[in-house]
Amino acid sequence: MKSTASNSPSNASAAARRRFLQGLGTIGAALVAGSAVLPANAQATVKEIKGVTGKHRWGLLIDTTKCATGCDACVRGCNAEHGINSTGNPDTDAQWIRKIELKDNLTGQLSSLPMMCQHCESAPCVDVCPTGASFKRADGVVLVNKHTCIGCRYCMMACPYKARSFIHEPITDQLTRAPRGKGTVESCTLCVHRIDASGSQPAEKSAEKTVQQPACAVSCKEDAHNAITFGDLNDPDSEIVQAIERSQAQQVRADLNLNTGVRYTRL
C-alpha cells in the first residue's frame, strides 16, 4: 500500500491522500485492512484528472543578448508551424510574433527582441472580452477560443503589447493543427498543441525534458542563437526560472503589473 502511494504523481492531492492514508493507518489494524481497497479507488481518481491544471505555468525567457539583429528565425518558425502566410500588408497580416530592433536613447546601444503575446497572469484581453472567448488556460496560456470569438476586437484595444491580430481576409489551406479563419482574433498560443501533445507524459519527469518546445524556440535553437527558453515558471528548479533569477529578467511594461509569462533579459 505504501508503495502504491509513493508511485503516484507527486502533486498536492496525492500528498493529501498519503497523509490521509497514514492517518488511517494509525487508527487501527481493522481500518488498515479495510483501506486496502481504498488506495486502488483513490489511485483511479487521481489518474482521472485530465487536461491542463495550474500545476505548471508555461512561459518564455528571451535573452536579448543572444537575439540577433535582423534574424527572424522565430518568426519564420511560427509562421510555418501555424500556416501563416503574408499577403504583403504587414498592417493587416497576422503577426503572432514580430521582431523589434531598439536603440537606447541614452547609450545608443542597439538591441533586438521578439514581441508576442506575453501570456499575462492578469491579462487585459481576458478581462475585456464580452463573450469570454479570450481566456487563460489553467496552465497560464492566454488563448482565443475561436469558436466563441465574435470578432469585436476589444481585446486588441486592451492589449498593451499589440500582440493580437484580427483576420481581415478569408484564409485557405490551413494546417490541421492550426485552424484559422476570417473575422476572428488570434495570437501566439505558446504552441499549445505541442504542449498538450506531450501532456500525457508521467508527471514525475521534469517538465522541460518531456514537453515539446514552441516552434519559435526550436527555430531559434536551430539557428544556433538559443535566445528563447521555454519552461515551467512554477517549477523553481526549471532552467527557465533559474535563468530568470540569474539574469534578473524583466517584464515589458512591468509598471502595469500584469505578471507576464514572457520575460526578457537586459531589456
Binding site: D127, P130, T148, I150, G151, C152, Y154, F166
Partner: peptide, 25 residues
Amino acid sequence: DLGRPDRLIVAMTTYNFRSIFAWNI
C-alpha cells in the same frame, strides 16, 4: 462591424461579467 456578426447569438448568450462590453450589452 463585428468580425463574425453571424455569431451574435453567442454574444447574447455567453457573458464574461468582468467585461465592460458585456455590461454594456
